[in-house]
Nucleic acid binder design. Structure first.
Lengths: 237, 237
DNA sequence: AAGTGGTCTAGACCACATA
DNA sequence: ATGTGGTCTAGACCACTTA
């Protein structure tokens, strides 16, 4: 839904995509039904096939169409529904909410990874990684409690960083581009440690986010972040 | 990370994207630094400019590059990190976990919407919508409790559906394509009603998902889904 | 065997931001 | 004013899949 200057025109591929979307939403083309092939549509819309192709690929990415060579393009039976979340820099998130950001490292040590972590990141149990625990604050109130394992072998230069003085969240986001990420979100009753560090009553509901990132050299970091139940994750787009 | 048949080759645009990604990850091209323009890269990679353009757009969508006309292409300073979640059809989700699916409608009635819902979906308070409450079961155990408001005006044919006999989740996913969705995820301590319907102790942590979908005619439906704390939402990709 | 989407190319023109 | 990305085109060949 990007706005456009009055004199300007939307790209033709976008217009075609909108029109096809409209035909699907208004049931001119029904679930599972085959739609005309790219060459036909190109003629209908007065566009090159490449342009139609771009529009239809867009809709296929959205999950509205299913395309197969030789079999043609069909309206998806189960439109795949997707929601995208942005992985924030915590400081920016706190500050954009109008709060003062604070950050405290609770512990930093090299430790052999326990079995659970080993399995999550695909490294052998007992391998020594950097284990970091920290709390982020907004206006002095705990905002997020991080329990993080970092694999220095995955990112050049990471060994020289002292995460007691450099914010691990920011450093990693800025310096360790990843190629793959896995995220799991769940709710839990706060453990005693969670409750103490987040300054909430024991057993209070917390939102738990577990995120692991990889690049081609292997796992970069795995994070367990705990949020008080006032926290809301919102989809982007 | 799609697998390919041995004899087959990756598309050239993909290869170029991979190579550029590698240069960024290995710091040949640093954060904020300008990279060669499309014409240069086309020569370097022995490809047409359109192919390079496709590759760079891909990386810009991933958040790794920032592109501006006239100013050129730069490695992003804050690589935007995204995670995508798929919104499942509950029955398929339950069955793919190897459980038997069950579904019970608790209440269906037309009611004026309260202020909170009105604000969330952008309709005037007091407008009459269909209010539906239902529980989904896996192997007889409560899996998800839905509290849903449906706007029949947004989707043709919806007035003829009796959601006591037709699964609202499935009907809407299949029949009401949307153009926009908002999702909010949080943790809460279960209310008495949540606890009763999910068969868990009162005050136990639950995962709360609030989702509203729109098409061009207006809001289609807004849903508050509650999950027991055993539930985990996983990112797709 | 043949139809359909997937991709690439060379060239062109345009839109936009900045020097 | 000019350089850069954004987009489109016509044509081509290829890869896959199914009829």
């Amino acid at each position: 839904m990007t706005e456009r200057a009055p004199g300007s025109t939307a790209p033709k591929a976008q217009l075609i995509a909108s029109e096809v979307r409209r035909r699907i939403i208004e049931r001119e083309w029904r679930q599972g039904q085959r739609i005309p092939d790219e060459a036909d549509l190109a003629v209908q819309f007065g566009a090159a096939r490449a342009t139609v192709n771009k529009a239809l690929q867009l809709l296929a990415d959205e999950g509205l169409l299913e395309r197969r060579r030789r079999a043609g393009t069909r309206v998806a039976i189960d439109p795949v529904r997707k929601a995208t979340f942005t992985i924030p820099i915590v400081r920016e998130q706190v500050e954009s909410a109008g709060m003062d950001y604070g950050h405290r490292v609770i512990a930093q040590r090299r430790s052999p990874i326990p079995a659970e972590i080993a399995q999550r990141i695909g490294l052998p149990e007992g391998q020594v990684l950097l284990h970091l625990r920290a709390v982020h604050y907004g206006d002095g109130k705990p905002f997020q409690f991080d329990d993080r394992w970092i694999n220095p072998a995955a990112v050049p230069g990471m060994n020289e960083v002292d995460f007691r003085h450099v914010n691990a969240n920011e450093w990693l986001v800025r310096n360790a581009p990843y190629t793959r990420t896995e995220i799991a979100i769940s709710a839990r009753n706060a453990s005693d440690r969670d409750a103490r560090l987040l300054d909430i009553p024991p057993r209070e509901a917390i939102l738990l986010l577990q995120r692991t990132t990889w690049n081609d050299s292997g796992p970069i970091t795995t994070l367990r972040a705990a949020f008080p139940n006032s926290h809301v994750m919102n989809s982007k787009d």
